[in-house]
Computed example of a mutant assay.
Amino acid sequence: MTAAATAASRPAILVTGADLADEAVRTLDGYGLVYAGARPTESELLALVRQHDPVALIVRYGRISAAIIEAARSLRVISKHGSGIDTIDTAAAAARGIAVKAAAGANAAAVAEHAIALLLACAKSIVPLDARMHAGHWDKATHKSIELAGRTLGLVGLGAIGRRVAAVAHAMEMRVIGHDPYAQDLPAWIEPVDLPRLWAEADAISLHCPLTDANRDLINAATLAQCRDGLLLVNTARGGLVHEADLLAALRNGKVAYAALDSFQQEPPSMPHPFQGQPGLLLSPHIGGVTQDAYVKMGVGAARNVLQALQAF
């Protein structure tokens, strides 16, 4: 469906992506949906909001800048197709009284599963061993993997995703420590700690917090220096949490044994990129929350948030 397909008689909702799940489309029956395409630029989004004057944005891709918010005269709500709202200028939205909503928890199972998969892939050297086998090698006599049972997993962020990761790690007989100043009613198997303790005690660290100005570059040379040698690091949250050059240096000097990243400071990363070909570094293209089930849950969650916000006016 293209922007031209929007019915002029219905209030417009601009989707900053190429599609929505059918279940989400049905939820928004009565509104005209405008699709911006798979990778909309700021200029393209500006043109669409000026043309269609949407009452709502459903944000899949692209940044929602102050200029876009200002240009959308009838805008009442910005609804994220997912949980992270760092791509939305929330201050500009608040200045106009525009609600900003997230489909919290909709992709929690998918992201948690991906984080565990990356952690296991690091500990068990899945990717390099697979490559060696395909090249005709048999490394049984020389390779030693890492056993996670009995080791300490440090979680930064204890929301829906972090708690799911904690539950799986606990089932694998890992000790689980975590830091989240907003978390309440934690299960008994998560020990709350401050960040200095987490850096000092964790054998593996997994990031599950939103990106803010306060925690940008949280993983950097200084924090990595406080960590145990041979650290395993997983980031399925936001790329801005990790100072990429400092992580690369830590991988090269052995401070970090393995790292697995599903998000990056720039997406997609510019190519060629220093991460390419780096031993001990697993990369995936920010697809932790991209499953068919999560696609439906995020779409329906975003649509319901739109309706709830619009009904409040």
Rank of each mutant, 00 (worst) to 15 (best):
R151F: 09
I64H: 01
H52R: 13
A56T: 09
I13A: 06
P196L: 05
L211T: 05
L281C: 06
I69P: 14
G157M: 08
A183H: 10
A3T: 09
G82H: 02
Q278S: 04
A200G: 12
P192R: 04
S79N: 07
I116D: 01
A149F: 02
D19R: 15
T2L: 10
A36M: 03
P196R: 12
A183V: 07
D229Y: 02
V165E: 12
A200P: 08
A110Q: 11
H52K: 12
L248E: 04
R26H: 07
G280P: 08
T87D: 00
P11I: 00
D139W: 05
A171G: 15
A104H: 13
L218C: 06
M298D: 07
S83A: 15
A257Y: 13
I177D: 14
A110P: 12
Q292S: 06
R50H: 07
C209H: 06
T2Y: 10
A110L: 13
G84D: 13
A71P: 04
A66Q: 07
L14Y: 00
A109H: 12
L283A: 05
V49P: 10
L153M: 03
N305S: 11
R304A: 01
A117C: 09
H143Y: 13
A188K: 15
S206H: 12
A309R: 08
H52E: 04
T236R: 09
A4V: 00
A259F: 06
P11T: 07
S125T: 10
A47K: 13
A204E: 10
A222P: 03
D293A: 15
L45H: 00
V100W: 03
L283N: 03
P285R: 12
Q276K: 01
Y35C: 02
E44A: 13
D203M: 05
E23A: 15
I88P: 13
T16L: 00
K101I: 05
R132K: 12
L57Q: 00
A169G: 14
G162L: 09
D293G: 08
L218Q: 10
S79G: 08
F313T: 10
G299S: 09
D246H: 13
L282F: 14
G159C: 09
G178W: 08
T27W: 01
P210G: 05
A99W: 07
L155F: 05
L307W: 03
S83D: 11
C122H: 10
I146R: 15
P11H: 04
Y35K: 07
A260L: 05
M271N: 02
A66D: 02
M298P: 02
G230K: 04
S270E: 14
A188Q: 15
G84E: 12
I116T: 11
A110N: 04
R50Q: 14
A250C: 07
S43G: 01
R96V: 03
K144Y: 02
T6A: 13
V165D: 05
L129Y: 09
A135Q: 14
A135D: 12
G136A: 08
A222V: 02
V55E: 08
N215G: 02
L148A: 05
R26F: 00
A312K: 13
I85P: 00
P11K: 08
E191S: 13
L186H: 11
A135T: 06
S263G: 02
K80F: 00
V100M: 01
G154Y: 03
Y258Q: 15
K101E: 14
P210C: 13
